[in-house]
Write a protein that binds this DNA or RNA. Sequence first.
DNA 1: TTTTCCCGCCAAAAC
DNA 2: GTTTTGGCGGGAAAA
Length: 728
Amino acid sequence: MEVNCLTLKDLISPRQPRLDFAVEDGENAQKENIFVDRSRMAPKTPIKNEPIDLSKQKKFTPERNPITPVKLVDRQQAEPWTPTANLKMLISAASPDIRDREKKKGLFRPIENKDDAFTDSLQLDVVGDSAVDEFEKQRPSRKQKSLGLLCQKFLARYPSYPLSTEKTTISLDEVAVSLGVERRRIYDIVNVLESLHLVSRVAKNQYGWHGRHSLPKTLRNLQRLGEEQKYEEQMAYLQQKELDLIDYKFGERKKDGDPDSQEQQLLDFSEPDCPSSSANSRKDKSLRIMSQKFVMLFLVSKTKIVTLDVAAKILIEESQDAPDHSKFKTKVRRLYDIANVLTSLALIKKVHVTEERGRKPAFKWIGPVDFSSSDEELVDVSASVLPELKRETYGQIQVCAKQKLARHGSFNTVQASERIQRKVNSEPSSPYREEQGSGGYSLEIGSLAAVYRQKIEDNSQGKAFASKRVVPPSSSLDPVAPFPVLSVDPEYCVNPLAHPVFSVAQTDLQAFSMQNGLNGQVDVSLASAASAVESLKPALLAGQPLVYVPSASLFMLYGSLQEGPASGSGSERDDRSSEAPATVELSSAPSAQKRLCEERKPQEEDEPATKRQSREYEDGPLSLVMPKKPSDSTDLASPKTMGNRASIPLKDIHVNGQLPAAEEISGKATANCFVSSEWGNPSRNTDVEKPSKENESTKEPSLLQYLCVQSPAVTSSSDPQEHPTHTS
DNA sequence: TTTTCCCGCCAAAAC
DNA sequence: GTTTTGGCGGGAAAA
């Protein structure tokens, strides 16, 4: 529904007050965005939905900082829901009076407020009659209050790539008020964003918004650090253990021979040394640091998929906490918090991995893979960028790790070789790469890892990988082409409903990218499903390249093109970076393309954000490819091919991706997918087809340790292929 | 049932 | 002292 509303007009004019929305929102929608309406409605109803405690309120009140920039208002419009709405909200936020009033209202009946808000949002006061309705609507479901959704709203307020000239400051109080949540929640978001340098603390209660400009650098550094830490090995080790049946016991890990040694080292780094960490001050456990480490795991992982339990174990180890189970649980809780924010940033998406034992929650990296840049920079950056880590980890790491690194050196080399070419079509690309990359690793680990990845890849993931890897070579490799993808045309998305949204976004992106010079990477965020779309609409900001879709559906495609070639996980080295150099930095991101899936979308609308994670589509698409809708999915063998794609409604675009292997194997490719590259460059990749959808994946059974299963919901439709495997 | 994760207590930092 | 930050884990909604 929402989607519908959004459509064109929205796209066209972001600002409009979407009348339509309101309605929809009311209905299902509220889930996602309450605010929008609220803003409008604000006067009527109490604004906040959020429950506020009196106690807390006090916080707001007095100060409220003057500080905060009103200006935000301008930019901020962006609520996901509606830009306009956002503005209003902001405005209201800006004006203390208003805020106060609202708060008070809220105070009075915190909970209710929410409800009210919803209702309002619905727009209806109308409703009055329906108290019942209100209930429904109002009752802000848990999802509506989710951190991921909140984060999206937060992100919507700021441009992904702010002009260097303008400085945007973020007043925590203001944001908390405008978003209707407690400040505590804002800290959760900001801490994660800070870990990626999207924001930085300026002063008490104030953060500066940097946007994604430096994200590539940050990621590069994190990747480097992760390599140094040998996280990949650790993960492999843990996985292996699992395989073995050994459960995680934190302490255990060591027992195994090789792994042990490695791990040990790791451990060493991690904690022992770093005095800097100040010993464990609170900060050591900081969400910020956890977030960085978590991201490192993805960047280092060949499969780009990290299961929560593995991540938790690794993080715990580092912290050297005792292995209690309680700690594990706590860690996992925190990881969910972080994951929700990262999901909102379209850096990861939720997937499920099937192991022998069963399904495990996991997240897959869908952010940029290759951050091209020179090594040197990396280094520097790291220092600057990630001071925290550096101190802690990095320092330790370096010392401890050097040895390891030595080994790792292979990474770099490897990558280069890898890059060599993997043509899209060619092989099973993804797997290969990885393996190759792994070369450096010990056999054991490497093999495990390989397996692991493969499985994953197969499933859904492969796509992503493939895309990266595969694609790159061909397209990305070319220096020239760095952008291939970039060229995103609005067309990409043609999807009926969806596209509008996307298109908008795209355009923005494009524009953006253009400006920046984007390049190589493209991030495309697609919304896979309609849902995404829906959510998107609101989100779309004119300025903002990213749209956030609540659902996982979004993905960013990056340059797989570029990256692909580059890198492998392990290394950064990108020679290639040079190719796209400039671009990278700046724009790196932005180019986005989006794709949509046509089919689902319409119906999906309902899903709203909630799903973010799960969607299969997503999975499927993972990397580049989009799966078509689940349901049909599969079939389709016929891909649409490319050529048309443009014309075709977008459905899926995938960027290059493809999973060659999968496709081949399965043959199934999905119809819809296109290679993005084409879009960008028609000729380049052609592989179009692809799409295997996730499912096909299975083809290789052997591998799998894990399979990625799409989220149930979606999945169902599609092929089930997945699971089966386990095994290993 | 398990997974996910909201909520807010409360203490460590920062004023 | 007060306020800001943010660790932490109970417990409930969602799956």
